[in-house]
């Protein structure tokens, strides 16, 4: 049979111009960045042409100016420091208590039976609803915020860790038993490693809850912190300052989520379909 020449006479592997091939390689983040820039310029323009009132919407340049001002006069550092402190202590406690307790509850079904009703009830309660109680008990200082951050983060961490330890594949247990594993070895070599992915997902979920805890806690009863800053600036219609506060918290959240994702990827090199 004769080969049929393609109509155009060229080979299928066309050499793309460098600009286009560069675009193809970076398309995903380029599209995201461009969309963001279009949005920001539209925002800026609509304020510049007085289509909307900056008192309500602020504008990218006004937020930037307010931010620079607040860092220059030093008024923001105290708020950042206090919020970071509350977050670090609350989330740290959630980690130190949630992970070991989750492992124990996942492994010992009796302990799980005793504590499970409490965990379920508290996990189902929006922890923010406990804020008035916590303020009565702990006052408006940092400890009440640490408590609310802790309560926000500890349950997702706890519940995911329990599930991770409990849902070990039966086949793996059979392998371990067949090779003569004792209980402790079964736990260390099978239950623990196979629960790591769920545990890390729990940490990520807990992070979101912890951030909500800080902001709402400080809005509701505090005299310092980023949540307090947002609330008071809002009350005075200082929209630019409100936006600065929001952006700071968002950036912190994104940064920490990315950090956890990075840790997840490191621990999950062995996962199939893993894209690094």
């Amino acid at each position: 049979m004769n080969a049929i020449p393609s109509p155009s006479g060229t080979s299928l592997e066309v050499q793309l111009p460098p600009v286009i091939s560069w675009w193809k390689r970076n398309e995903n983040w380029l599209l995201g960045t461009i969309a963001m820039l279009v949005f920001l310029s539209f925002w800026e323009t609509s304020v510049a042409f007085k289509w909307v009132n900056p008192l309500f919407t602020s504008a990218p340049t006004r937020i930037l100016r307010a931010g620079i001002e607040m860092f220059a006069d030093g008024s923001i550092y105290g708020h950042i420091a206090i919020s970071s402190y509350e977050f670090a202590v609350g989330y740290g406690l959630a980690l130190v208590i949630g992970v070991p307790l989750g492992i124990l509850m996942g492994w010992y079904s009796r302990l799980n039976a005793v504590l499970e009703p409490f965990v379920s009830a508290l996990y189902a309660t929006p922890r923010i609803a406990l804020l008035p109680l916590i303020l009565i008990w702990l006052g408006i200082g940092v400890s009440s915020k640490i408590a609310i951050v802790f309560l926000g983060a500890v349950f997702p961490i706890l519940v995911n860790t329990i599930t991770g330890v409990r849902t070990v594949e039966a086949d793996f247990i059979k392998v371990a038993r067949s090779f003569g594993a004792r209980d402790r070895q079964l736990f260390l070599t099978v239950a623990l490693p196979s629960s790591v992915p769920l545990l890390l997902a729990g940490l990520r979920l807990g992070l979101g809850h912890a951030l909500v805890g800080i902001v709402v806690g400080e809005m509701y009863g505090a005299n310092e912190g980023l949540g307090y800053l947002i609330a008071t600036a809002g009350a005075r219609f200082q929209t630019d300052k409100v936006m600065v506060g929001i952006i700071l918290i968002t950036s912190a959240g994104v940064a920490m989520t990315e950090l956890l994702r990075w840790i997840e990827r490191r621990y999950e090199r062995w996962r199939p379909n893993f894209r690094g």
């Binding site: 059979k174 392998v175 067949s178 003569g180 070599t189 790591v196 062995w270």
Partner: peptide, 28 residues
């Protein structure tokens, strides 16, 4: 230790390398 089992579904631990899967029993 006088008997060893080869499982139907290979049941290899996905988080262990080939070598560490092979030495699992010795490790225990």
């Amino acid at each position: 230790p006088d008997r060893a089992f080869v499982f139907q579904n290979d049941c290899l631990f996905p988080w262990r390398t080939v070598l560490r899967n092979v030495t699992y029993g010795l490790e225990l």
